[in-house]
């Protein structure tokens, strides 16, 4: 199966390294583009050579080529869209994804923007074109939560989804709890370790978690909700005393995303949980608890970020598409 990759940041590089390391997956890279160049070869590119060029020059290919040329080349079965997230417009990924679907190509993305902005429109477009649109990597990193909702727990009725959806916040709260650090100290430490962005606003104000909650809500119930519908409280106002008071009751505080359509609940906020609750996880981990009618409560936990971890989710989507749609050569 031929794969075109748009975006060569940490996740794109992790994917190319995995493709190079696992030739047995039979996923052939035929095109790649970054923000200033592209390379296309319908017979297959060497992922290692593309990575080397990217590292040496900052460009993966010829500067006269771009993502648009990759899309128009048609030299791929699946487009993997990994450009940076724009939560407000979903661009440029939204245009890339629509363009690929309209050409009859399958799409896999780790980009939260387009899925959060127009889940219903993109899903309808893909259905009409008879192609797959998969986005496991948008929520919970390596955790196969979308697979669990769509496949593993198919036929269940879901009553709620709650989860720890942001590793940066979970790290900060874990450190405040374990070491009695102030919010500012824990944030500074997270930055030093590379767990927090230079501008951590999206993470600590709960916006990143809210975007993921929107994706889960629309995937599970087709609610058609957007970021504006989520009641959001971040962790930036929390005090050490709050964690101490929770600890006195054998509890702690975590940033929890919660959606329960019957109760009209769509909320991201710091919450008090008993220490032995399945969602009380340490460090940068993520966890999602699905409440269903048949399976009861199912909790998935794992690494919520990282280049190879995210590549794992992307590869899972690619193989699901290959098995369902594409005949193996």
């Amino acid at each position: 199966m031929r794969v075109a990759v748009l975006g060569l940041g940490a996740v794109g590089k992790g994917l190319l390294r995995t493709l190079a390391a696992k030739p047995e997956l039979d996923l052939v890279l035929t095109a790649a583009a970054d923000s200033s160049s592209a390379c296309i070869d319908p017979d297959g590119l060497d992922p290692t050579a593309v990575l080397d060029a990217k590292c040496a020059t900052g460009r993966c290919g010829a500067s006269g080529l771009s993502a648009t040329d990759v899309l128009a080349s048609g030299a791929y079965d699946v487009l993997v869209e990994l450009t940076p997230t724009n939560a407000l417009t979903g661009e440029p990924a939204l245009t890339h994804i629509r363009s690929a679907i309209e050409r009859g190509k399958h799409v896999v993305t780790s980009n939260k923007g387009p899925i959060a902005v127009d889940h219903a429109g993109l899903t309808a477009l893909a259905d009409e074109a008879g192609v797959a649109l998969r986005y496991e990597a948008t929520v919970g990193g390596a955790i196969p939560v979308i697979h669990a909702i769509r496949d593993g727990l198919a036929g269940n009725r879901f009553s709620s989804i709650t989860g720890v959806l942001n590793g940066t916040c979970n790290y900060i709260l874990t450190r405040m709890d374990d070491e009695g650090l102030t919010y500012e100290q824990a944030l500074a430490e997270a930055r030093e370790l590379g767990y927090a962005e230079a501008d951590p606003t999206y993470d600590v104000r709960g916006i990143d978690a809210a975007i993921k909650l929107v994706i889960l809500a629309n995937t599970c119930w087709s609610l058609g909700v957007t970021l504006d519908d989520v009641s959001i409280t971040g962790i930036d106002g929390l005090t050490v005393d709050a964690l101490r008071l929770a600890a006195d009751q054998d509890c702690t505080i975590r940033l929890i995303g919660e959606v329960a359509p019957a109760e009209n609940l769509l909320r991201v906020a710091p919450r008090v949980l008993p220490r032995n609750h399945p969602l009380v996880i340490e460090g940068t981990l993520n966890a999602v608890m699905l409440s269903t009618d048949m399976a009861g409560e199912v909790t998935l936990m794992g690494k919520g970020a990282g280049s190879v971890e995210t590549a794992s989710a992307i590869i899972g989507d690619l193989i699901a598409i290959r098995d369902r749609y594409v005949e193996c050569g």
């Binding site: 509890c251 505080i253 710091p270 008090v272 949980l273 008993p274």
Partner: peptide
């Protein structure tokens, strides 16, 4: 306000 998670009250 930091509330307990429903169903998970101590």
């Amino acid at each position: 306000i930091v509330e307990p998670l429903a169903g998970a009250e101590a």
